[in-house]
Design a protein around this nucleic acid. Structure first.
Lengths: 213, 213
DNA sequence: GACTGCTGTTACCGCAAGTAACTAGCATGT
DNA sequence: ACATGCTAGTTACTTGCGGTAACAGCAGTC
């Protein structure tokens, strides 16, 4: 039947693609990032070569998979960064947003952060750099926001980028550790991190008998 | 010949082990972490099963390999943390020590930070936790130092751990980004990071026309 | 009817991790 | 002298994964 032109085809292909991605996600969340292509194909009810037609190779599939969550997380953080209140409120809201995200779905988090890549050759340099790891993208984004909103003198852009990556790294490492051990509440963690960013390290006096940090 | 007792045997085994580790290191530094056990064995002039006798499996070998560099780096940082000067000097010295280390031997760094682990089962929980990733160990160590030297009130230990992991993460992410792009000198990078830790984020005024960070 | 472009298949290659079974040297206990 | 035990070493194998032909069926288009 003359159902449609080429657009229908393309749309159908896209739908199939997202179906495959959803199957892949189910498997990855169940088996971890070392899930085999066979397992993913089986979950989707098909066989390997189709996955390869859609995504090129395994890293292509994983990149597509990562992009969805990465975009979602970045949007969430962006919202938090625009939340009402003073600067400290915004920073705490952003930390909360991030920690809440990784706390809610730790498996997704592990997948995004420890992708167990096996690229080896990387012919050319893939123009669409969706593959830029999450940390970098978060760092760059935060750097831009900082540069937009703060006046840090002549090298504002430079400083802002450093801070963006630095703050993101702080959030990342503290979050990773916290997620593993959960030695305190999220509220407290956020407060301590914000205290650190607010210069409490510089203000605090040495402990008696110590040579000072 | 009655060369020796059992101690000689054990010592010889240890020597052999470090020889194998050195061969493995050569290969990993040349081929990256995806080096095959066959390649490593060949470099050492032997065949696979011997590697497996010494290290159990691939991750065992990699853990042993990582431990050497991890210990060395931690010792370096510890020294920097004890360097003379005021607190800011020490912090900057530590940042310099870390950045200098990763700058000097980026391949080692990549190996340590992105080990491409394939554990999958982890039978029991290996008591000797040499495998604790570098970031965690650095964070814990720094946390201890902070708790030793600073008085942060009743929850000093808690706060110190958070800060330890946070600062290490800051150093890590900024260093990783910097190592890839090198957009500024190491000196400047260190200064900006120290500024961040010294509360400049809180002190700086909003940019005109911005809603404030 | 021939062409294109998608869906899907089976059957294979190459290669890496890991294991089984076996041999050879060498120091020790009897 | 002989057996024991411990190490270093081997060849040859199994299993499983990423990835790739080569092929078949089913739309709609010219």
């Amino acid at each position: 039947m003359e159902t449609g032109q080429r657009e229908d085809q393309r749309a159908a292909t896209q739908r199939r693609r997202t179906q495959l991605l959803e199957a892949a996600e189910r498997v990855v969340l169940r088996d971890g990032p070392e899930a085999s292509m066979n397992a993913i194909a089986a979950e989707a009810g098909i066989t390997k070569p189709i996955l390869y037609r859609h995504f090129g190779d395994k890293s292509g599939l994983y990149r597509a998979l990562a992009k969805r969550h990465t975009d979602a997380l970045l949007a969430t953080l962006r919202t938090a960064l625009d939340s009402p209140g003073d600067r400290r409120d915004r920073v705490e809201a952003t930390l909360h947003a991030y920690l809440s995200a990784i706390e809610t779905r730790p498996q997704v988090y592990r997948f995004l952060m420890h992708p167990a890549e096996t690229p080896s050759d990387e012919k050319g340099f893939d123009v669409g750099r969706h593959s830029v790891p999450l940390l970098r993208r978060m760092g760059e984004d935060l750097g831009e926001v900082i540069a937009e909103r703060l006046d840090l003198g002549p090298d504002t852009r430079e400083v802002a980028r450093v801070w963006g990556h630095g703050i993101v790294g702080m959030m990342y490492a503290a979050g990773d550790w916290w997620l593993g051990e959960r030695p305190l509440s999220r509220d407290l963690l956020v407060r301590h991190l914000a205290d650190l960013l607010w210069g409490r390290l510089a203000e605090t006096g040495d402990r008696a008998g110590s040579r000072g940090l």
